[in-house]
Computed example of a mutant assay.
Amino acid sequence: MRTMRWARRTWQETSPTLRTLAVVLWSLGAILLALGWWGDTVGFWQDRPFLTNVASSLVGAAFGVPLALVVLQQLATSQAEAVEARAARRLASQAAERLMELVEGLWGSIPGGASRAVEGARQLAATDDERFWEGAYGDPDRLIIHASRLIDSNLPNARRWGGMLSEIAAQWEFLNGTARTRVLETTPESWRVSARDAARMDQTIARLRTIDLTVIQTDLRRFRGDARPRKRANQQRMSEVAADIAAMGALSDLAKAFTASLGGRS
């Protein structure tokens, strides 16, 4: 049954020209076979050994040559598809690696800047807890100074922020568009970026493009210099800043996940 399915699929994938040639030669072979059988019954071949060999060869060629050509074409097609699939996977892998390079480039020469900024944001987000202001985690003013400086010293370059984000958005569009289409057309199982993660990436980039790093830096410095009552009054703004920094961390995490899942460096 499996052999029949393979034969049917192979025949359907054979070029129309080769199918026509195969039908013509197989028909000719059938005619020659019938003539050969008739010649045997009437004794035509008895005194003609050379002609017998020629006729036998023609019958074999009429049946064998088309079959060989069909198989060879199938092998060539399979090889071409395998090459195309490897090229598609390589394109996706390289696109993911380039995306990762751009995301890492946001922090320039600051190794680990993203993770430290996110840690500062996590600490700053604690200001939303009433126990924070009651001293449950330590002196609120000192904690705020530490968290805000940790963020401030690890933020990406504000002057390069907009341009870099545009490059990241364009690279992500290429990865999730052109590269994704190529992979899905060849080896769909090789595309391991979930629709959920792709949507998260779209949302994260959209959010980050609304952020003005200069404003964040100004607000952080003002916040840590304010008296405690004013800090509490502006706590909501710091929660927003913490969420914005967390989005930067999410961008980095998603880029790493895409690179690893598509066979690039992790």
Score class of each variant (00 low, 15 high):
residue 192 R to E: 14
residue 171 Q to N: 09
residue 213 L to C: 03
residue 196 R to M: 15
residue 113 G to C: 10
residue 141 D to I: 09
residue 143 L to P: 05
residue 139 D to M: 03
residue 114 A to H: 09
residue 187 T to R: 03
residue 106 L to E: 02
residue 167 E to P: 02
residue 146 H to K: 08
residue 227 A to L: 06
residue 244 D to Q: 15
residue 206 A to T: 05
residue 117 A to V: 02
residue 198 A to I: 01
residue 164 M to P: 05
residue 170 A to V: 03
residue 166 S to I: 01
residue 120 G to Y: 05
residue 169 A to K: 06
residue 175 L to G: 04
residue 196 R to F: 11
residue 116 R to K: 08
residue 226 D to S: 10
residue 204 T to L: 14
residue 197 D to M: 11
residue 201 M to I: 11
residue 218 T to E: 15
residue 153 S to M: 12
residue 191 W to F: 09
residue 234 N to I: 09
residue 217 Q to R: 12
residue 224 R to I: 04
residue 203 Q to I: 13
residue 197 D to H: 12
residue 183 V to E: 06
residue 169 A to H: 02
residue 230 R to A: 12
residue 212 D to E: 10
residue 181 T to P: 00
residue 110 I to Q: 00
residue 143 L to D: 07
residue 134 E to C: 03
residue 210 T to V: 03
residue 190 S to I: 01
residue 120 G to S: 05
residue 167 E to V: 00
residue 194 S to I: 07
residue 198 A to G: 02
residue 232 R to V: 09
residue 184 L to W: 12
residue 185 E to D: 11
residue 189 E to H: 02
residue 213 L to W: 03
residue 240 E to Q: 08
residue 194 S to Y: 07
residue 171 Q to M: 07
residue 231 K to F: 08
residue 126 A to Q: 15
residue 148 S to D: 08
residue 211 I to M: 12
residue 205 I to W: 04
residue 221 R to E: 01
residue 148 S to E: 05
residue 116 R to A: 03
residue 200 R to F: 11
residue 190 S to M: 10
residue 193 V to D: 00
residue 163 G to W: 09
residue 241 V to K: 08
residue 161 W to N: 03
residue 200 R to G: 01
residue 243 A to T: 04
residue 124 L to K: 05
residue 214 T to W: 02
residue 174 F to R: 06
residue 126 A to E: 15
residue 139 D to Y: 02
residue 158 A to H: 06
residue 182 R to F: 09
residue 168 I to H: 03
residue 238 M to S: 06
residue 216 I to H: 03
residue 123 Q to V: 05
residue 183 V to G: 05
residue 149 R to K: 06
residue 144 I to R: 06
residue 111 P to A: 13
residue 213 L to H: 09
residue 105 G to K: 01
residue 208 L to P: 01
residue 201 M to S: 06
residue 200 R to V: 01
residue 178 T to H: 10
residue 228 R to E: 13
residue 111 P to Y: 10
residue 160 R to V: 00
residue 140 P to G: 04
residue 187 T to F: 11
residue 228 R to K: 06
residue 162 G to Y: 10
residue 108 G to R: 09
residue 132 F to L: 07
residue 112 G to T: 02
residue 111 P to I: 06
residue 219 D to L: 03
residue 173 E to G: 07
residue 189 E to S: 13
residue 109 S to D: 12
